[in-house]
């Protein structure tokens, strides 16, 4: 990967990731958020967070499958931070538009409504990951610890999916596609690890006894 291509791809990623919020802001200014603007904002931000999180989860399996794609690691932090950004917009939409900044309402919701509990938990798990996303933080924590900490993203993704299912009405299957993606990408990891460990010894011949 040459530097100009990398820079171009980074710019394109930024544009793609900023597109959902740009559309929301422009629709809000031109009064085009539809009959139920509150729902449009909440759904769009939640969907964007889920979508970007899924793409970021796809990078590791993609690299394990095709070594030519190893450069994709350079995009994971950017995607992770954008997922956190949209999750935060989503949370803020709830706080402002549903709870109307009423702390009592928010506490009641978190305690009583399991889909909100799961959603808030998912967001809280993303916070330490966003805070430790800098190169400095990786050095301070040490690679091993950092990696261990960032495995929390799997839990956050699962909680986000549970949040989605618990939010929709009985019988509604809109979260199914995202669920299959998350399930597939999380299951691919142990499968690929097992596959590699099975194949590695064959490629490296055992040293002959002296």
């Amino acid at each position: 990967m040459t530097k100009p291509i990398l820079i171009t791809l980074k710019v394109l990623t930024w544009i793609a990731c900023l597109l959902p919020i740009a559309i929301l802001v422009s629709d809000a200014i031109t009064n085009n958020l539809g009959p139920d603007p509150t729902k449009t904002i909440t759904f769009s931000s939640g969907k964007s967070a889920m979508c970007i999180l899924i793409i970021s989860l796809a990078i590791t399996p993609a690299r394990m499958l095709w070594s030519k794609l190893s450069w994709m690691i350079k995009f994971r932090r950017l995607l992770g931070l954008f997922a956190f950004f949209y999750a935060s917009v989503h949370l803020f939409a709830y706080i402002g538009l549903y709870a109307a900044f009423d702390t009592h309402v928010m506490i009641q919701d978190v305690l009583k409504r399991r889909f909100i509990t799961a959603g808030v938990a998912a967001w809280l798990l993303l916070v330490p990951l966003a805070l430790t996303s800098t190169t400095g933080a990786i050095k301070r924590l040490g690679g091993k610890n950092w990696q261990r900490l960032h495995k929390l993203v799997y839990v956050a993704a699962i909680l986000a999916i549970i949040h989605y299912w618990w939010q929709v009405k009985a019988g509604v299957t809109t979260p199914l596609v995202d669920t299959l993606w998350v399930a597939g990408l999380l299951l691919l990891r142990p499968i690929l690890t097992w596959w590699k460990s099975r194949n590695t010894p064959k490629r490296q011949p055992q040293p002959r006894p002296a």
Binding site: N31, L33, P37, L97, D109
Partner: peptide
């Protein structure tokens, strides 16, 4: 558990997933 037979509009009885105390009027800005 979510939709009773009566289902009278009642701000004091929550839906399991949200409060029914307030509502948003369709067509108004966010």
């Amino acid at each position: 558990n979510e939709y009773g037979f009566y289902s009278n509009v009642n701000p004091n009885v929550d839906h399991p997933r949200w409060s029914q105390a307030t509502e948003r009027r369709i067509g108004l800005p966010f």
